[in-house]
Design a binder for these strands. Sequence first.
DNA 1: ATACACAAAATTGTATACAACGTTGTACGC
DNA 2: GCGTACAACGTTGTATACAATTTTGTGTAT
Lengths: 235, 235
Amino acid sequence: MRDSGDQDSVRHIVRTLRRRIVAWQYPPQFPLVEEALAQEFGLSRSPVRQALTHLAAEGLVERLPRRGFRVQQLKMVDVEDLYGFRLALESQVVRALASRGLDEQTLARLRAPWQDPQALASEPVTRLAELDEGFHLGLAQAHGNALIIRHLEHINERLFAFRELDFDGNDRIASTCAEHGGILEAIVARDVALACELIERNINSGLGNVEDALVRLVGRSYLSSTHPVSKGVSP
Amino acid sequence: MRDSGDQDSVRHIVRTLRRRIVAWQYPPQFPLVEEALAQEFGLSRSPVRQALTHLAAEGLVERLPRRGFRVQQLKMVDVEDLYGFRLALESQVVRALASRGLDEQTLARLRAPWQDPQALASEPVTRLAELDEGFHLGLAQAHGNALIIRHLEHINERLFAFRELDFDGNDRIASTCAEHGGILEAIVARDVALACELIERNINSGLGNVEDALVRLVGRSYLSSTHPVSKGVSP
DNA sequence: ATACACAAAATTGTATACAACGTTGTACGC
DNA sequence: GCGTACAACGTTGTATACAATTTTGTGTAT
């Protein structure tokens, strides 16, 4: 019976810790002590240390020279940077697709889930978030740049805790359908500028929703540090 | 006398190995054996292993489950993906800058090195590559997205071996001056579409040059898309 | 009470030991 | 000669030990 995995327990630790961190199961700045984690996973410090090194390279934890690893707190400015990064990648994808076209089959596959807003209304929020991720990732896969695809996946993982906030309001479903449909239309019409404009609006509305939802949900206290969550109250 | 560094030997190993790998001092697929590296650096396997884990996360080496680390070969398709990735980031940067403007001071600093093509002609190629990197990074810093900045820096490191190939031809200097000047002009004129178009042309010409230079230098066999870099003649 | 000095505890960084696994070379059977 | 079984070797994966350093706690002097 293979207990912890036939190949690598490091991967298991990485995955588990990553899921916990992005789901905010640790408070920000929480110190991840090697020995404690080793004991919890029933392993020694060696694989734990490797996992933490990996997570540090991913940016999920920070490593202080002789003081160990701490969970990296996502500040509001980080969320904004992530969305800006995502916007850069996706607008490039959409621009390229609009300029070189999209085959029927891919188009149909991307369009399918967003044809019927009525049906989507009864889906659970998690499912909506998955479909949304699938749409954006599908565009990137149609584009084909492996690096961009990988980074988009990573962004999705990093924003895991926020993905459901995007679909908070009910009217968000209808507008998402409209936006996705519009983007595909613009691509098919080979209208580069329009497609770019629409994806930008789509992503920015997502960011706006997340920001609003955050302020509403957790208040300004949780994510504040350098840049407070609030958009407006500067001295 | 601090021998290997006051804080972390891992960083030293990472930096050293990274420099070697991007400078092609190892043949592709070269196996990086922990014990051998440990002996070379005068350390034990633990820090070496951490360094390799880090490099694997960066994509510079690949890790085979129970068979260790090997240097990841840059195939032509990877170079293309890197340039595509870079294009995504930079065109977003330029678009944002063009739509919100650029202050005089930054503008002057970015423009300065490219005013006088004559003077540049006498600079060594390495210096030209540095200036070029400085221009593109400067734009990103003016934009301000920390993630984008970090990724651009990483791309530059990854493409280290190619950076001088870009300035192979002599007329490349003049055209680079023209292109950079044009980009800044478009930003100042708030012409988003033009700025985007120009940065795309600039980056793509860079990719083209690198591809041409590669084919000229090492032959098409070296970096062929599917094939690993094997110096030996294939059957 | 506060500040400083110093010792004790906790934690990281590194080294080493050992077991599990993969690879390679060789001998044997066909 | 060719293919397979098996042993010897090399390498990774994990555990553990020890040293260096930071943090914490305590006692004393001001």
